Amino acid sequence: MRIAHVTDVYLPRLGGIELQVRDLALRQRARGHETTVITTTAAGPGSPVGTAHPGGLPVVRLGADRFDLGPGLGPYRTRPGRAVREVLAALRVDLLHVHVSAFSPLGWAAARAAAAAGLPTVVSVHSMWHDVAPLMRRYARWHAAASWPVVWAAVSSAAASAVREVLDGVPVAVLPNGIDPAEWLIPAHRPVAAVPTLVSVMRMVRRKRPRELLRALLALHAAGPGRFRAVLVGDGPLLLSLRRELAAAGAGTGIELTGALDRGAIRTLLAASDVYLAPAPRESFGIAALEARSAGLPVVARAGGGVADFVQHGVEGWLVRSDGELRATVASLLDDPGRIASVARHNRAVAPRVHWNGVLDRAGALYETAAQRQGAWSGGARLLGSAT
Rank of each mutant, 00 (worst) to 15 (best):
R2Y: 05
A4P: 07
V6W: 00
G16L: 02
I17S: 01
R22A: 03
A25K: 04
A25W: 02
Q28T: 12
Q28Y: 03
R31S: 02
G32T: 00
T36A: 04
V37G: 01
T39V: 06
P45M: 00
S47H: 14
A52N: 05
P54Q: 02
G55C: 05
A64E: 07
D68R: 15
G70S: 06
P71Q: 11
P75Q: 15
R79P: 14
R79E: 13
P80Q: 07
G81H: 10
E86F: 13
V87T: 09
L88W: 11
A89M: 15
A90C: 06
L91C: 10
L91D: 08
R92I: 04
V93Y: 07
V93M: 09
D94N: 08
L95F: 13
H97C: 04
H99F: 06
P105F: 13
G107E: 02
A109I: 15
A109L: 09
A113E: 13
A114Y: 05
V122G: 07
V122H: 04
H126E: 05
H126M: 10
W129C: 14
R137H: 12
A140W: 09
A140R: 05
W142C: 12
H143N: 05
A146F: 14
P149H: 07
V150N: 09
W152D: 07
A158P: 03
A158W: 03
A160P: 05
V163K: 02
V166W: 04
V172W: 03
V172K: 14
N177S: 12
D180F: 01
P181W: 01
A182G: 03
A182M: 03
I186A: 00
P187K: 00
P191E: 00
P196N: 01
T197L: 14
L198S: 02
R206K: 10
P210E: 01
R211T: 05
L214W: 11
L220V: 11
A222T: 06
A223F: 13
A223C: 03
P225Y: 07
F228W: 11
R229L: 04
R229P: 09
A230G: 03
V233N: 11
G234Y: 08
P237V: 02
R244A: 15
L246E: 01
L246T: 02
A251H: 09
T253K: 10
G254V: 00
T258Y: 02
G259L: 06
A271G: 01
L277Q: 06
A280M: 08
P281Y: 01
R282Q: 04
I287A: 05
A289V: 05
L290R: 13
A292E: 06
S294Q: 08
V299T: 09
A303S: 14
D309I: 03
F310W: 05
F310S: 09
F310Q: 08
V311Y: 02
Q312R: 06
V315Q: 03
E316H: 09
L319Y: 01
V320Y: 11
E325F: 08
E325R: 14
A331G: 14
S332P: 10
R339Y: 15
N347V: 07
N347F: 12
N347M: 11
A349D: 08
V350M: 14
A351P: 13
R353N: 07
V359D: 12
D361V: 10
R362S: 13
A363G: 12
A363P: 12
G364R: 11
A365P: 09
A365S: 11
T369K: 15
A370V: 05
A381D: 08
L384K: 13
G385D: 04
S386Y: 15
A387N: 10
